[in-house]
Amino acid sequence: MSIISGKIWKYGDDVNTDVIFPGKYTYTVTDPKEMARIAMEDLDPNFAAQVRPGDVIVAGKNFGCGSSREQAAFCLKYAGVGAVVARSFSRLYFRNCINAGLPVITLPHSPDLFKAGDVIEIHLAEGYLSCSAGRFEFPPLPDAVIGIFNDGGLIPHTRKVLGLER
């Protein structure tokens, strides 16, 4: 899991939770496969059908702004997305990704440097990613939350802390 590899899906600034996972589905679509099928429905109708395991979303600032709905993080995970790289994240989305065990990487560079469809490799443990645009380093997650992420998300982490591991 330490190397993520796939192709780049590129998006702009302020991609909100409603276009990642529309509000009208929040109480009706709960099956992971179905959630994957509607991921990014209102932003990129081709995404769900064409995304492959390990693919990476590269976006601008404030990715995941809007609602607290964590389905917007889980649906990308269920769709196979390996990581989301953005200039910045909304705080709720950032939390939800950590809690879902979906890697989030804050990279100050403009997404314009990256090419949609390009192959990207992310070395999480080493803290760098590389693609045709070059090699970029990123800081690790804060110590206080890396445990949650390493345990696969908040629920498995909590089970472990409480000694309720299955």
Binding site: S68, N96, L162
Partner: peptide
């Protein structure tokens, strides 16, 4: 605001 999983952990 927080996420659903986080609320589940607060329940617990």
């Amino acid at each position: 605001g927080i996420g659903r999983s986080e609320m589940a952990v607060i329940f617990a």
